[in-house]
Simulated scan of single mutants.
Amino acid sequence: MNTLIKKELPAKRKFWLNDMEAIVIIMILLVIIGTINIFSASFVTAEMTFKNPYFFLTRHLISIVIGLAAFFIATNFDYHRLRAAVPFLMAFTLVALVVVLITGVSVNGAKRWIGIGSMQFQPSEIAKIVGIVMSASFLGAKIDADKIITPFNRTLLIVLIMAALVEVEPDMGTAVLVAGIPILMYVVAGMNVRWIGYCGIAVALVAAFMITIQPYRMERLKSWYDPWSQSQGVGYQTVQSLSAIGSGGLWGMGLGKGVSKYSYLPEAHTDFAFAVFSQENGLIAVLVVFVLYMTLAIYCANIARRAHDGFGKMMACGIMLLTVGQAAANMAMIIGLLPVVGVPLPFISYGGTSLILNMASIGVLINIGRYAAYKAAKEKNTIAGGMITIKTNQRLRRLK
Score class of each variant (00 low, 15 high):
G310H: 00
F274G: 10
M331S: 11
N330L: 06
C300N: 02
W251A: 04
G258K: 01
A327G: 05
A327S: 03
I319L: 09
I245Y: 04
V324R: 11
L287F: 14
C300R: 01
L322H: 08
G312W: 08
L345A: 03
L292E: 00
G342S: 04
S247F: 08
G325F: 14
S278M: 13
A316Y: 00
L296P: 03
F277T: 07
N302S: 10
I335G: 07
N330H: 00
L265W: 02
I245K: 08
G336Y: 15
W251Q: 04
T353E: 06
V291P: 10
F347I: 03
K261Y: 06
A275H: 05
L292A: 01
L255P: 00
A316F: 00
S229E: 09
L337H: 10
S223Q: 14
S260T: 03
Y236G: 12
N281F: 11
G235Y: 14
Y299L: 06
G233I: 06
G342P: 01
V291W: 10
G318W: 00
V286H: 12
M320G: 08
G233V: 03
S354E: 03
E280N: 05
M331K: 10
G254K: 00
Q230W: 14
N302C: 14
Q232I: 01
L242G: 13
G235M: 11
G252D: 08
I284A: 00
V341R: 10
L321Q: 12
M294F: 12
I245R: 03
V276E: 13
Q240E: 05
V341W: 13
A329L: 12
S354V: 12
K222N: 15
T295H: 06
T353M: 09
A316Q: 00
V324N: 12
V259D: 09
F311P: 05
Y350G: 15
A301W: 15
A301Y: 15
G249R: 05
N302I: 02
W251H: 07
G336V: 15
Y264Q: 07
Y236R: 11
A304D: 10
A332P: 09
V234C: 15
E267Y: 08
G352K: 06
G318M: 00
A275N: 02
